[in-house]
Write a protein that binds this DNA or RNA. Sequence first.
DNA 1: TCTGAAACTAGGAATCATTCTCATATTCGA
DNA 2: TCGAATATGAGAATGATTCCTAGTTTCAGA
Lengths: 147, 147
Amino acid sequence: MIEIHRIVETRLQAVGQRYTPKRRALVEALRRAGNPIPTPDLADGRRGLPQSSVYRNLAVLEQAGIVHRVVTGEEFARYELAEDLTKHHHHLVCKTCGKVEDVTVPPDLERSMARTVSAVGGRAGFSGVSHQLDLIGTCRSCVQNDR
Amino acid sequence: MIEIHRIVETRLQAVGQRYTPKRRALVEALRRAGNPIPTPDLADGRRGLPQSSVYRNLAVLEQAGIVHRVVTGEEFARYELAEDLTKHHHHLVCKTCGKVEDVTVPPDLERSMARTVSAVGGRAGFSGVSHQLDLIGTCRSCVQNDR
DNA sequence: TCTGAAACTAGGAATCATTCTCATATTCGA
DNA sequence: TCGAATATGAGAATGATTCCTAGTTTCAGA
C-alpha cells in the first residue's frame, strides 16, 4: 500500500506543503500501527522525532486532511490516518487502560445514524454535521487484572 | 427539582462522602447550565470556587456517579450531571467554537445502537460496553462569522 | 550551477489545564 | 465539648501542547 504516500504527497501539495522525510516517517508510523497512537509515543524512543517536529507536522498533516486527531479521556491526544486513507470505522476504548481499537459496525446502522444525525443537527441550526460513535468498555486484560 | 440534591446526598453517603456546600454549589451550577460546562469556567468568576476545590470535588462527584466528564477536542474538559439525574442524550459539538449542546435521537436508533454496540464490543473481548454518539458540525453563529 | 526566498527543523521557553502538597478549618460521632 | 476523620484552599509541580527563533534545506529561476 505504498499508494498511500502518493496520495499524501498530492494532498500536501494541494495546500502548498512538502512531503518531507519527517512527515513521511509520521505517516509510516501511523500506517504501521493501524490504531490511534498517543502523540508522546511518536516523540520519544529511538525512531522518535523531536517533539516540536511531531506537533508541528501533525498539525500540517491534519490540516491537509491526512491524519485525524482522536480525542479520548486521556491527558494526551492520539492520531490516526484519515478515514479516506483507511476505511470508515469507530473506536472501541478501554475505560481502564485507555487502549483504542478500530471497529466497524453494520452498514445499515451506519445509514440510519447518518440519516438521523443530519436531521437532528439541522433542527438545532448546525450544518455539515457528521457523527462519531465510540464504544466504551473494559478490555479483556483489564478485566482479568481487576480480580 | 430539588429532589436531585436528595439523590446526590444519598449517593455520596454510599461512598462515604459528605454533601458539603462546595459540592452542592457545583451540582447547582451544572444543573442550572443544562449543558456541559468547561472546568475552568467553574473555577473563576464571582461564584467561582478555588480551582483546587473544583477539581477535587468534581473527582469525588464523578466517582460517586453524580457527574460525568465530557471529552471534546478542546484543551480542557467539561462536566455535566450524570445521565440518570437528567436523561439519556448525546452531544452536538460545534467544531469551530467548541460549544456543546444536548440532543436526543429517536428511540429506535438508540435501540439498534445499543444492540450493535454490545455485540461488536463482545466480539473484540470487551465487556460492559456502552456507547457515546457525538454529532460534530458547525453552529449557526460560526457559519455566519465565517462569511 | 548559483542564489535568494520560502519552507522546514529542532531546541528550549512559555502556556495552561490538571494534579499534588500541606497547613488550616470544618464536621460528625461519642 | 473533644478528637479523629474529612474538607478546604493557596500555591507548587506536572506534563501535554504551543510558541519562538536561529539555523538548515529545498526549489525556482537565471
